[in-house]
Nucleic acid binder design. Structure first.
Lengths: 254, 254
DNA sequence: CCACCATCCATTGTGTACAATCGCGCTGTT
DNA sequence: AACAGCGCGATTGTACACAATGGATGGTGG
């Protein structure tokens, strides 16, 4: 609890994840990234003061970031008891996936109608980045970029409420994948992403929706939600017992 | 700016809209209600200090409530410039309605599968309340209760992400209705709500979805979004000019 | 007379001190 | 030995003070 970052006052974009914007966004992005990359395990307590020291900002900023993360379902905010990394139950995971199926179908149809050439090019670029991450063995970045692909697709759908909802769903999905994914197979196979882009570019709505639905099938078929989820579920159930494994520096390296 | 409420420290539930919970919720609910009942017109500036004095809490609380309202799209938070009541453009209204169609369809199907007898009874009760409000001539309460009906329905669908999204959509819809509704016709005709409940109770999914879609049709057919929206749109465009019509006590009576 | 610029003021953004709350361990009793 | 009650420590909740930003206003020069 004695090491601290440079006060990040003026660094324009902090490394890889720090989007442009205010301190909130930087803190938010770093915590989010740490959760996705499993440097912060589900159930880990997120002390406001500790995070404040780590990032060199006051609790005010931390609190806003946590509130935002909580709203997206990545962090659980227990009144008077602090924040912990969310550990979605199997049931919660199912609900998220159901909602995503719904939203992705609509987004795909809309994207086929509205996606511009520029957006399609950006999507292809993101798939490239994603493939690079996986081939580099950077699992966390891969999951994150895969999520960002779906978010970019939502932007192409040109519907602000859907984009916002999709952001929340993608965040939660990423957390679920990080928590439940079986084996070491790649997550969103980027091949599927590429095919999807092709269908969208060809303005073939039916095919695009089909591909997206299969893509969704593949994603949750990779998870252990169905039968043998007992062990993972137990872990989630008892995670609050493990949460106090030294409060000191949950984030080792940023 | 000199009259103030009792500091609301310990009043368990403040009148009609104050849900159980902390001060945030009370402030949130009151502002939300004031917006829906058009005691706060779109474009009205929401000064943190003024609200703080009115509710007898510090800006910290107000800020949280505003942030929450902003996330639901009812309030626009402009960095360094304060918060104003959102004034959705026609395009934004269209996007909200598109998203709602999507979500309502899914919610209806799920509610048909999962709604319990108790929930159905609660829905019927809400329709009664709604009818009472309209017959009493309380337009604001009517719009609000009508929204709460749709939210209750979402709860019956037993999908947390969808509930959360629906909450946001319903809030925005209510604001749009308050802003754009033509004539003095009733908004959500409660007859349609009753029929919908009947179909759900009979577990007739196809009929229920049909009714819901027609219900959606009726809702936006009542709005002036389509052709003659010019005047309303102009009003929205220039609403920021009217926003400074005395900052004093925007909320007259709670 | 108009346009531009500098200064001021009102309002929001942030940090920090204090108060309230909850969990935990201690002690005493049965 | 086990359990209930109580106080303590740590952490969150709230208020407030100060800093920073942006708009408004009044003055000056063209």
């Amino acid at each position: 609890m004695n090491e601290q970052l440079q006060p990040l006052k003026k660094q324009p974009r902090a490394g890889k994840a720090g989007r442009s914007g205010t301190q909130d966004d930087i803190v938010y992005a770093h915590i989010f990234e740490a959760i996705l990359e499993q440097r912060l395990a589900p159930g880990t307590k997120l002390s406001e003061e500790a995070l404040g020291e780590i990032f060199g900002v006051s609790r005010t900023i931390i609190r806003r970031a946590l509130s935002r993360l909580a709203h997206e379902g990545v962090v659980l905010l227990r009144p008077n008891r602090g924040a912990v990394v969310a550990s979605p139950s199997v049931e919660e995971a199912r609900q998220v996936f159901l909602a995503r199926r719904l939203v992705e179908r609509a987004i795909t149809e809309l994207a086929v109608q509205h996606a511009t050439a520029e957006q399609i090019a950006e999507l292809r670029q993101m798939v490239n980045d994603e493939r690079d991450s996986f081939s580099r063995g950077d699992r966390g970045a891969g999951i994150r970029l895969s999520g960002e692909f779906h978010l970019k697709l939502a932007e192409a759908a040109k519907n602000a409420p859907l984009i916002s909802f999709q952001r929340s769903l993608v965040s939660q999905t990423s957390l679920i994948i990080a928590q439940y994914e079986s084996g070491n197979r790649s997550h969103c196979s980027y091949d599927e992403h590429t095919q999807l882009i092709d269908a969208i570019e060809a303005r073939n709505g039916e095919l695009a929706v089909d591909l997206m639905m299969h893509h969704m099938d593949h994603i949750d078929s990779k998870l252990n939600l169905d039968e043998e989820s007992a062990s993972d579920d137990l872990h989630a159930v008892f995670s609050h017992l493990l949460q106090t494994k030294k409060p000191g520096r949950p984030v080792a390296k940023l």
